[in-house]
């Protein structure tokens, strides 16, 4: 079974995220950039050849940071 830490690192590299990001930033940006690539979600969101999940990346980072910040806080408690 693949190590989930290395899987996350691989996904981050594949998504073009620069190394050294804080976990909160890395995960928020990773999800904002990649969630819509899932084949089922891509099928639901693709309109006239454009995956409409992709243009939401910028606004989603703002939405997702609080989720990962809260998880990070729980992890440190």
């Amino acid at each position: 079974m693949e190590d989930i830490t290395s899987l996350e690192a691989q996904l981050a590299r594949d998504a073009g995220l620069e190394p050294g990001l804080h976990a909160v930033d890395r995960r928020a940006r990773l999800v904002a950039r990649t969630w819509h690539r899932n084949p089922e979600l891509a099928s639901a969101l693709t309109h006239r050849g454009v995956n409409l999940g992709m243009p939401l990346e910028q606004v989603l980072v703002r939405d997702l940071v609080p989720i990962f910040a809260e998880a990070d806080k729980r992890g440190r408690a």
Binding site: I4, V31, T34, L41
Partner: peptide, 15 residues
């Protein structure tokens, strides 16, 4: 529907 089917869970098993 795709999310209920586990689309995100399969994307990010480390979460």
């Amino acid at each position: 529907e795709a999310m209920r089917g586990g689309a995100l869970r399969s994307n990010y098993p480390f979460l």
